[in-house]
Design a protein around this nucleic acid. Structure first.
Lengths: 252, 252
DNA sequence: GGGCAAAAACTGGTCTGACCAGTTGGCAAT
DNA sequence: ATTGCCAACTGGTCAGACCAGTTTTTGCCC
């Protein structure tokens, strides 16, 4: 482990152990360098790492400060990396929803066609859990409902693909639950959409199931977007660096 | 926003857009510095930030590598397991084609809407290579054409998903090329379909592009299925160890 | 030729000292 | 007391040097 890592760990522990409170100013880079006996470049690299982890925030000319919101990590998963990914590039959230619209639509269609009795039972159970749970509490029932449908599609490739996106999907579900559900009329609409999906699958109406599922994802997408346009913080949106549209996919 | 942040965003964007795949080595610090016209210190600070977010991993003396963003699955093990599943279970071929129908349709639609000049050039090049190559020879031009379209969709999630399915996609493409192309009338039809996809994207006709792409995949699907019903051996199973584990997705 | 060790040519890691660019606070002129 | 300016902070960027690992090339020996 290099010195840079060591320094960032030391600083992080200092902060987490309470030596430095949230919002408090961290010693200047030059002071830290002198005190820890390393060059300022090392200090800066360590601070950037902590910055990447969201532990500190830096302001030009003023100093670095302990971030106010220490994550607390509700899921001890390492999806914090993904969270930052979304935080830095909110567009990715919509990219994912774009893909989800297709795949969930297909899953619902296939589920309507292929669901076995066991599948129907699983889906029904998940749906009931969804109805009974306090919507604001957490996103798990919501995700469970979608998951049951996906598995009922009996397409292992589809299951695999959506499984690989699971962590990210949980985030989008979380975003929708956290931002949309608190608004009563939104919650009503989403409930209704879930019901339509559920009934269409149970009735074996494949096309209706597909359309309902796609409409549901699209509704979430549009709602989040309009929320964002109203200035709400869907997921911490930052001004992005412009001009990513001229050389986006090309490699070095 | 400082240059350092901008650099880290740019790198992240590159990675997300699929220009750099997980596990791939990113250019050396000195190369990046020269290429982006900034000092090496800046590059190092940006890399440390990405490191803090878990986007990249660095090894002394070797280089920095893109971390697998979608953790858990998505890697070699899972893929090879699916490959085995594929070999022993031809139905999986159709499962994959089912999913491909959706995703390629979406990719074509988005490409028609979002392709930059550079994208159009790449697609055109791939299309020309496709026209000029002996169709029976190999599947690479075919796959390259689809790949160019996917990248032009500018949806990093979509790129990642289809990238994860790349090995299997190559197999389906190979199956289609090997079984369908030798038949003259089939080859004609497929050529025509490719042309329709290409023209629709170039003309920016999103809906037509989607439909053409979906029709193409569905055509391959139906053709293979009818071939199979005639008793032909659609996919040659490569020699593999029998030894079947129960399939990971616990279906069937 | 084939095998193997030395050496060159990479890679990231650290240091130094300089200068630019925002922020802040005090002190002087009004 | 208010205004305005300047000095002393702060972080941001740069250049070049050297250390420390890894990979590739070289060139000798058998």
């Amino acid at each position: 482990m290099g010195i840079s890592q060591e320094v960032s760990f030391r600083l992080e522990r200092l902060i987490l152990d309470g030596g430095l409170a949230p919002g408090q100013k961290i010693p200047s880079e030059r002071q830290l360098a002198a005190r820890l006996g390393v060059s300022r470049a090392i200090i800066r690299e360590a601070l950037h790492e902590l910055q990447g982890r969201g532990v500190i925030e830096t302001q030009h000319g003023r100093g670095s400060f302990v971030a106010s919101i220490v994550p607390a990590t509700d899921d001890l998963e390492e999806n914090s990396a993904l969270l930052h990914l979304f935080a830095g590039h909110p567009r990715t959230l919509y990219d994912l929803l774009e893909v989800r619209e297709q795949l969930e639509g297909q899953a619902a269609e296939l589920a309507a066609q292929r669901a076995t009795r066991g599948d129907r039972h699983s889906i029904t159970k998940a749906y009931q859990a969804l109805e009974e749970t306090d919507p604001m509490s957490n996103a798990k029932p919501d995700h469970g409902f979608h998951q049951a449908i996906i598995e009922a599609s009996h397409n292992p490739i589809l299951v695999h693909v959506l499984n690989g996106l699971k962590n990210m999907m949980l985030l989008t579900v979380h975003a929708s639950v956290a931002n949309l559900n608190p608004r009563a009329e939104m919650r009503q609409l989403i409930m209704k959409q879930h019901k339509q999906i559920y009934q269409a699958i149970m009735a074996g109406r494949a096309n209706a199931a597909r359309k309902a599922a796609m409409a549901h994802v699209r509704f979430v997408q549009d709602s989040l977007r309009s929320l964002e346009n109203q200035g709400a913080e869907v997921i911490r949106v930052s001004l992005n660096s412009g001009n990513f549209h001229e050389n986006p996919t090309k490699r070095y």
